[in-house]
């Protein structure tokens, strides 16, 4: 059952590969990578939270606010650059600072107050969307700051700089989460809170860390969101949220241990992007794409819940 999403996904890929032959060309693959960027980065954040909170869909770790946080940070940066004449450094500091505050809020709600992560981060997500609207008056802000344009267009030996930066970011996250004692402790907390506690690890501290890490991911994603959209577009968190959840849990189906991992989440983001591009290449109606993505999320999350049940 746990491999069902992976199997269905591979079938879809084969089908797309056959019906949309240009899908596997180099230029398309590079497009797929580029389009996966903001999703991949927020997935890194979600992966941290799920690894620290466990993959129980209801009571485990989840952070639905990362996309809204990213969009909020992007809005603040754009607003500062364009409407307040701030320098990039100030704009980035304000935007990313706001994102980190969201992380602190989540950590307090979940760890100190003891709300379920699902509800706490849903609430903070709504708050972030609201603040975004206040900041931007729901308007799009065009940004043509050279650094943002550079991030959008620059290439290094034919490879998008944004893709390279994202890959580096993934590597940093990987080392932190999978190759350090801290990362192992984080995973231990997510695997079994009691086991971590008897091993002398403080689950609360690490869960709080995970929400901060998620906020950092949101903050970093904001810059790439700005680059991709050549500005800030309110409302782009919805699609991002959908893809983030799908990608992260899909990645679990592909990981050898069937749990959420950093590489799994990043791979998931690329696969989701591939799916989007593939469907559009063969002319599938956008509403059907939505249906298929929704069905996949259901399948992925249901199979995670089911295999959890089997384990007990």
């Amino acid at each position: 059952m746990a491999v069902a999403p992976a199997a269905i996904f591979l079938l879809l890929l084969v089908y797309l590969g056959v019906t949309a032959p240009n899908l596997l060309e180099l230029s398309t693959l590079s497009l797929i990578l580029q389009q996966s960027i903001p999703t991949a980065i927020v997935c890194m954040g979600l992966a941290s939270v799920v690894m620290a909170g466990g993959d129980d869909v209801v009571s485990g770790g989840i952070d639905l606010s990362i996309p809204a946080t990213a969009v909020l940070a992007a809005a603040i940066i754009a607003d500062q650059l364009v409407n307040h004449g701030s320098g990039l450094a100030v704009a980035l500091m304000l935007g990313m600072g706001a994102a980190l505050l969201m992380g602190v809020l989540n950590a307090v709600l979940v760890v100190t107050i003891g709300m379920t992560p699902l509800l706490a981060t849903l609430a903070s997500s709504v708050a972030a969307v609201g603040i975004t609207k206040v900041v931007t008056s729901s308007r799009r802000i065009n940004v043509d700051h050279p650094l943002i344009v550079f991030l959008r267009d620059a290439q290094f030996h034919g490879i998008s700089v944004a893709v390279l930066l994202t890959a580096m970011l993934a590597l940093i996250f990987y080392v932190a989460l999978h190759r350090t004692r801290w990362g192992m402790h984080l995973q231990a907390v997510g695997g079994s809170r009691d086991a971590a506690e008897v091993s002398g690890i403080s689950p609360k501290r690490l869960m709080a860390h995970s929400f901060l890490i998620a906020a950092v991911a949101g903050a970093l994603a904001s810059v790439f969101l700005l680059a991709r959209g050549s500005g800030s577009t309110p409302g782009s968190e919805e699609n991002l949220l959908l893809e983030m959840v799908l990608a992260t849990f899909l990645g679990a189906a592909f990981s050898p241990r069937r749990v959420v991992t950093l590489w799994g989440a990043v791979l998931g983001a690329v696969l989701v992007s591939l799916l989007s591009v593939g469907f559009k290449s063969i002319g599938v109606d956008v509403f059907w794409t939505g249906c298929i993505k929704g069905a996949l999320i259901l399948l992925v999350v249901a199979s995670a819940a089911y295999s959890n049940k089997q384990r007990r």
Binding site: Q35, R228, S230, T233, S236, V286
Partner: peptide, 21 residues
């Protein structure tokens, strides 16, 4: 045909797909 689903960002990204097509 490509449809942005009422999302300007998706609409913009769809042009990349047309380019690669």
């Amino acid at each position: 045909p490509v449809d942005g689903g009422r999302d300007n960002q998706v609409h913009a990204d769809n042009h990349d797909i047309l380019l690669s097509n």
